[in-house]
Each structure stands twice: as structure tokens, then as C-alpha cells.
Amino acid sequence: MHTVFLNLLCLGLLFTPGTTLAQVVIPNEQIPYENTEYCLTNINSEPQHVFYDADEDALYENYTFREIFFGGTDNITCPAFVSLRLLTPDLTDVERSVFCLSYDEEQDTMVGFSEGTRSAYLLCKEPSVPLCDRVNATKEEALAVVGLGAGATAGASAATTAAGITAVTHSSGAVILTGSSGYIAGTLGTVGSGLLAALTAPATLIAGAVSVVAVGGAVYVCRPDE
């Protein structure tokens, strides 16, 4: 919990004090009520009560007029960028630009994030996208993924690094490998235990095609949600 609090504090975002599991209880004097606004988001059907800086430049760089005009839903009043920050607390705003939000309309909740093209609400444009999870990877593993993307220009694929694997770089600096988990694990060769475990997990192998995203020293494995 303390790690979550510190990450959100660095981002200028804090949970409101409370007693539910979805909230971090902190002293009132630590909450920047001045110049902040309250909103509600919902992640995996769990309410999240948030204070955020409504005047922050980065917010409006990712806050479209469509979202401002039409507003939110019953369960989500936060700007989408606030929700994305909560889901990716270890990334900078530039680094997280490679990701989009996955939204369950029936449950009115964010269910995670993926690598992909964003809508005006920062939602993934594809109706069904692989959800991404950060893996327990080392810096060396992240560099190994980045090494496979060497030679790719922003938004373009590099030469296929191995049968069935492509590498693409993103304007955020992220390198994205796409292919079967087995091919990617085999191509990385001496990949560390964290990423290897994620790529060879039963659920990942069943998923077939996966994406591995290295950004900001972190590694994410994105696979279809069962």
C-alpha cells in the first residue's frame, strides 16, 4: 500500500481517505485538497475515489473535447487519463502513451490496459484486445527485448527477427514484440526467469499470439483475456 501511495504522490494523484480496500488511509494534512478535484473511477468493478490536479498540462494533453463535453458514466467520472495513471503507476506520462484502456461496457468498469490505438476516451479501439500485465522482469530482460527492436523506426516494423516475430517501436520509446510466446521466448535466448515464466505460463501458451512491451525499464506481456 505504501508503494502505491508514493507512486501516486509522485504523479500528483491521491486516493481520498477512507476505510474500503480500494482506498489508502492517509492523514488529512497530506492530501492536497487545494487546487485538486475529486472524481470516481472503477477498476475491475472496484470503486476508486481519487483527487487529481485538474489544471495539470499533461491531463489536458490527453483529455479530448469529446470526453469533456459528454462526461463520464454512473461509475466513472474521472478523466480516462487519470484511470490509466492508476493502472500504470510506475510509468511516466510519455511512457504510458503506448497503452490504451480496456473497458467493460456491461459492467461499467475498466478491466485493464493494452497496447493499441486509442479512441477519444483513451479506450482501445479494438473491441477485444489482449490485456497487459507487468512481469517480474529485470533491467537486463527489458534490454534484451529492446535489443530485438533495434533498427525499427517509430511506428514501423523492423525486419522479422525470427519466424513469426515482428518488432515495432513506439513514439514513447517502447519496443513491442508480437508473435507466439514460444517463438519470442526462444528468440530471446538467455531471457531471465521473470519474463520466461510469463511467456511459458499455461494461460499464455493457450493464448497463442502475444505481445511483449518493453518501456521505461519495465516489461509487459499482453495476451487475450480468458
Rank of each mutant, 00 (worst) to 15 (best):
Y63S: 09
C78M: 02
L86D: 03
A154Q: 12
Q107S: 15
L6S: 12
G173Q: 03
E106I: 15
I206K: 12
P17L: 07
F5M: 12
N62V: 12
G208L: 10
A218D: 13
E46D: 14
F51N: 02
V168F: 07
T138A: 09
D225S: 14
E29Y: 14
Y63Q: 08
E37M: 14
V111N: 03
V129H: 01
M110S: 08
M110L: 13
P127L: 09
R85E: 06
H2L: 14
T117L: 11
E34I: 14
D90E: 15
K139H: 14
A185Y: 02
A185V: 09
A80C: 08
S180H: 07
S172Q: 06
G194K: 04
N136S: 15
A163N: 12
E105L: 13
N75K: 11
L131D: 08
Y121F: 14
Y103C: 02
A154K: 12
F99A: 06
L205Q: 12
G149W: 00
V135D: 02
A207S: 11
A167C: 03
P224G: 09
S102Y: 07
T200P: 04
Q48T: 07
F51G: 02
V191S: 06
T3E: 14
L101W: 04
A174R: 00
Q23C: 10
T77Q: 06
A209P: 09
A150M: 13
S211C: 08
R96T: 10
E37F: 11
N28Y: 14
A209M: 10
G164C: 04
V175A: 01
V215A: 01
E106A: 15
A162C: 09
